[in-house]
């Protein structure tokens, strides 16, 4: 059995790629991994909000109501709508104006995050987020036959709420012939392959950075959303982060600092993790209950929800005499 394991930067995050052979079609893991890496680079080139020449940026700037789009863009917009519908509008892909107003206009690749404890100390009162009353995401219509997208000019789309999970799903589909594979884009992972052997996935605590919990994941997705990576200090002295409350258009402070969600796909896991964090402790548990997940409260407490195979990540020490035998 041959295994390819690589890590690289893309989409403002660390991307992890594990491909275990053999493949039923005889493909080499390393060659398939190279194709996957190229696909992720192409995905970012087309769907990044931070690249002025990307197809998404051109679509957002296009004054026409109907715009031709590539098949990848049409599929991505389908995913954006499905995420919004699944979460009742909590994960809204049309909040570009709001997130830019919060200070997230450019990529934060390489930027040092503010200290989350400082941000929590100055944050406004905690309350669950809610959907936007305008429900702009419902105005996006995709026509695959015509190869166009309809939306009112000025409605801009952000791939930040679904892009990494969607990319992981598509990448794993391309690796479906292999016995096992994992594609992790930032915190959003998709496990696939013909083998029934699950992967153990470590969960990083958003406050301590410790990886002291692990989830056993079979074929499916797992995603984590948290406030600790993309949080910054504004010029007025306050703090902001990238998870916007659609009802207010401002960063959401709900009493949770991190959520890990399981789901059949990575894009659904990403949607559920973001929605659960936005919904706060009560609503978040309901969102996670079907497939399982973890809620991390502001005091650092970890609360497992639903059907989740959670194990402490303990170091295993093998006696030397056992090894010699």
């Amino acid at each position: 059995m041959s295994t390819h394991d690589s890590t690289f930067r893309a989409m403002g995050s660390e991307v992890r790629l594990i491909v275990e052979g053999p493949a039923c079609d005889g493909r080499d893991p390393a060659a398939a991994a190279a194709e996957t890496i190229a696909f992720i680079a192409e995905f970012e080139r087309r769907l990044s909000r931070f690249r002025p020449t990307s197809e998404l940026s051109r679509l957002n700037a296009d004054p026409r109501a109907t715009v031709p789009a590539s098949p990848l863009m049409l599929d991505a917009l389908d995913a954006a709508r499905e995420v919004a519908e699944l979460t009742g509008g909590l994960v809204d892909p049309t909040l570009v104006d709001e997130i830019e107003a919060a200070g997230y206009r450019h990529s934060r690749e390489g930027a040092v995050a503010a200290r989350l404890q400082d941000a929590l100390a100055l944050a406004p009162g905690r309350k669950p987020a809610g959907p936007s009353p305008t429900r702009r995401w419902e105005l996006i219509e995709v026509d695959h036959e015509a190869g166009v997208v309809h939306r009112p000019p000025g409605v801009r789309i952000d791939s930040g709420g679904f892009g990494k999970g969607f990319a992981a799903d598509l990448a794993v589909e391309g690796l479906s012939g292999f016995s096992r594979c994992v594609v992790g884009c930032g915190g959003d992972l998709r496990v696939g392959g013909a083998s029934a052997d699950p992967f153990e996935v470590l969960v990083e605590h958003p406050l301590t950075g410790e990886r002291d919990q692990k989830i056993v994941v079979g074929n499916g997705g797992v995603a984590t959303s948290g406030l600790n990576v993309r949080v910054w200090k504004r010029e007025d002295g306050g703090f902001a982060h990238h998870l916007i409350d659609p009802s207010t258009g401002r960063p959401a402070w709900t009493g949770l600092v991190g959520v890990t969600a399981l789901a059949p796909t990575a894009v659904e896991a990403e949607a559920r993790s973001k929605a659960a964090l936005l919904a706060g402790p009560g609503g978040g548990a309901e969102i996670l209950r079907r497939h399982g997940g973890l809620i991390v409260h502001e005091d650092g407490e970890i609360e497992p929800i639903g059907p989740i195979r959670l194990q402490p990540n303990r170091r295993v020490v093998i006696p030397m005499n056992a090894v010699a035998a």
Partner: peptide, 13 residues
């Protein structure tokens, strides 16, 4: 035998 790959990590992104 090649060492098993390190477990993947899910973290805030």
């Amino acid at each position: 035998p090649a060492p098993a790959p390190a477990p993947p990590v899910t973290s805030s992104s």
